[in-house]
Design a protein around this nucleic acid. Sequence first.
DNA 1: CTTGTTTATGCAACGAGTTGCATAGAAGGA
DNA 2: TCCTTCTATGCAACTCGTTGCATAAACAAG
Lengths: 192, 192
Amino acid sequence: MALEHAILVSLLERPGSGYELSRRFERSIGYFWTATHQQIYRVLKRMESDGWIDVREVPQQARPDKKEYSVAARGRAALSEWLHEPIEPESVRHDLAVKIRGAAFDDPSALIREVERHHRAHSDRLAHYLAGERRDFTGPDAPAAPDAGQQLQHVVLRGGIAYERMTLDWLDDVLATLRRLGTAPPSADPAP
Amino acid sequence: MALEHAILVSLLERPGSGYELSRRFERSIGYFWTATHQQIYRVLKRMESDGWIDVREVPQQARPDKKEYSVAARGRAALSEWLHEPIEPESVRHDLAVKIRGAAFDDPSALIREVERHHRAHSDRLAHYLAGERRDFTGPDAPAAPDAGQQLQHVVLRGGIAYERMTLDWLDDVLATLRRLGTAPPSADPAP
DNA sequence: CTTGTTTATGCAACGAGTTGCATAGAAGGA
DNA sequence: TCCTTCTATGCAACTCGTTGCATAAACAAG
């Protein structure tokens, strides 16, 4: 399980409340690890009772109080231990690929709109990543001499950018294939 | 949930037993959807009681009997329905990315071996995909006029190949970054 | 003849992750 | 004034997925 560790990394980069963490999981660290606020609150509670993180009640004006979490020594140790143990290269779960293979037993051209929708979503994500890269790493306001943390964040973001670009190219390939099948007569037997 | 649908697609491509399905999920359809045999047997049972699939007891010599499943009309309908409803573009879960960002708070050069291991694993996978592509689609024994099903399987496989190539390039980038940080003094504060 | 491997199926328990719902104060708009 | 949105936290129930274990027949190796 890596949600604990993702939270540790995020809290080391900057302490924050469960709510703030759930916002970060909608961007930044959320680009490669998703979590809902429910999960985050539950895990935070466990991490606190395990002594991985410390809590500080922060009264606020004009909004509800919050609990600000920060990483304790035991949490740092747990992260370090995890960093040193090997993990399995992750396997992908791509339901769109299942749909594409399934289209052989249905109408392939009916999938075109769906694939176009995915294309737009990935295109938006790419634009979003590129804007973030310009803002934090390559733009005029970016640090001239980035520290280790910034360089590592940047290389992870470059991974996200590469992923989206690859995906967009592939979706173009998928669209071309589906359109080719749409103009030719279907050879796989459709539903009886 | 898409495991049901992945199983439907696989059974439409060729009927088979739970055991055979679990083998297919180690290759082919397993390239983009993973499942253990436990999960498969449980879901098959549910699908059967829902009338999505039919069973046929097949006695075998020299090995235990098996239950061969094939897709029933209701299963075909369920697949068709699923194909026509939109799905969310999937979000990635990349624990290696969490580790890389976490390395800022540990020793970045300690991650090099781990990243190299992932590089080898993805390199093996790419070779495996390319061999499959040559065997089934681009080699001399491949069909000269592939049908819709084969063309769709091929475009999915091309996606896998593109993913592995992109990942290998990115891992090279990661390794270069980690090595650069290893030779320079660390600027993020390490564990106290 | 025992041990290990392959085919083949399954239960039980747990942990991870999702969905629906609930609460509550303050701000801002219709 | 009411309705919605934002911040902030949480419970309960459920589904999904993993891990460990168990069974059983046949074959191959030692």
